[in-house]
Design a protein around this nucleic acid. Structure first.
Length: 111
DNA sequence: CGTTTGACGGTCC
DNA sequence: CGGACCGCCAAAC
């Protein structure tokens, strides 16, 4: 996949939308794939995604530790965990269970 | 164009 | 285990 052309944010949105259901990715992984900014850029971009029309599954993006660090930005902070569990991702104490197994790297798109 | 702002990551203590 | 710091860098103001 070779996006480029759009702003850094849009690239983040597109990548995030490609995250398969029941899988999770990390800010760092996305930033690494884009090879542009750092994990902060991804988190910042996702923050804007809320206000956009595109239904970006931001709940599938967690930090490199598998923790739902961004849950505080959802309407009900518990929504993030709820959505994940609905997709089959078990969450315990704000952490994704078997995170490394469910971890999805954007690089999968190139393959 | 300088300053502020982050949903991170890693290190240090 | 958790708090303090620093580095990262695009976008909004």
């Amino acid at each position: 996949m070779s996006f480029r052309a759009k702003s850094y944010y849009e690239q983040v949105y597109m990548i995030t939308e490609q995250i398969p259901e029941g899988r999770v990715s990390t800010y760092g992984a996305i930033a690494d794939y884009l090879a542009l900014g750092s994990a902060r850029m991804v988190g910042y971009a996702l923050g804007q995604s809320n206000k956009m029309n595109m239904p970006v599954p931001a709940h599938r993006v967690v930090n490199r530790n598998g923790e739902l660090t961004g849950r505080g930005h959802f309407k009900p902070p518990s929504m993030m965990q709820k959505l994940l569990e609905q997709e089959g991702v078990k969450v315990k104490k704000d952490k994704v269970v078997d995170f490394k197994e469910l971890f999805w790297h954007p690089q999968e798109l190139d393959v």
